[in-house]
Structures are given as C-alpha cells and as structure tokens.
C-alpha cells in the first residue's frame, strides 16, 4: 500500500491550508469556466486574464478536497505570467506525471513543475487523479473561451 505521506506531502497540505490566488477576477476582461467532479461533487471555478498570449493573472474558487484545492493553488502559481505555450507544456507535463497521455504526447523537455512535483504521489492513488486534474481541465476550458 502506498503510504498517506506519499499523498499528503507537507507542500500539498500547505497549499491546501494557505491557498494562493484564491478569489475572482472581473469578467471581462478575464475569462471564467467551471469544472465538476461528478464522483465527489467537487466544483472548481478558474478565472484567467490573458493578454498578448500571456496569462497575466489567474484566480480560482470552489470547494473540494485537499488534493483538488492544493493542485489549483499550485497550478495558479505555476501558470501566472506564463505564455499560453508554456501553460500547455506545463499541463502536458503534469498530466504525464499523473500517467495521463495527452494528445500532444510526451514533451521532449518536460516543463519544470515546481511545487506541483509534490503531487507525484497522487498517481499511486488512482481515484484521486481526477481530483488533481480537475483544475487543469477547467483552466484549459477557461483559456479556450
């Protein structure tokens, strides 16, 4: 059995207890999308302010478990100030870490995931992978709109 310490790393719990970039952004100019996890009812809202192909600002809201909330917090830190290409690369690298094969396939040079690395253990808890990917899918939705 994978130990709980693989899942609930200190950095993860820290982002859960002290979420970064929690809140809202005025729409417009920001875009907004909602994501649902039908399994547990978690809801996440992601706001992104994109100008000239760069994510100027990002906020998230909603309610969910420690994994979904901490991932959203870490994601918000990781994507802020990045170009859309860099965000896409981050998402692919993150999903690859979660054993999810994305359309773009494995990137030649995986993005530096920073704090998000702490979520590597989630892959040992297959039920929780959806918790960790919910905010990424919602961000994609936001950026598409």
């Amino acid at each position: 059995m994978a130990g709980l310490e693989d899942l609930y790393r200190e950095i993860v719990l820290d982002h859960y207890r002290n979420p970064r970039n929690r809140g809202e952004l005025p729409c417009p100019p920001a875009q907004r999308a909602e994501g649902f996890n039908p399994l547990c009812g978690d809801e996440v809202v992601v706001y992104a302010d994109v100008a000239d192909g760069v994510v100027r600002d990002v906020r998230f809201g909603g309610q969910g478990c420690s994994i979904s909330q901490s991932t959203a917090s870490m994601m918000s830190v990781a994507v802020k100030g990045r170009s859309l290409e860099e965000v896409e690369k981050l998402e692919r690298s993150f999903k690859s870490m979660m054993s999810i094969v994305t359309d773009g396939g494995e990137t030649a040079s995986p993005a530096d995931l920073g704090d998000l690395e702490a979520l590597r253990g989630v892959v040992k808890f297959p039920v929780r992978i959806k918790c960790a990917t919910l905010c990424w899918n919602t961000l994609t939705e936001t950026l598409r709109s």
Binding site: Y8, D42, G64, C65, S66, F125, R128
Partner: peptide, 11 residues
C-alpha cells in the same frame, strides 16, 4: 473534505 476522510480511513 469527505474525500480526505475516506482516504485516511481506508489506510
């Protein structure tokens, strides 16, 4: 969150 409760109880 209930998901976290259930995860710990599972161990």
């Amino acid at each position: 969150h209930a998901h976290d409760i259930s995860q710990v109880l599972d161990t």
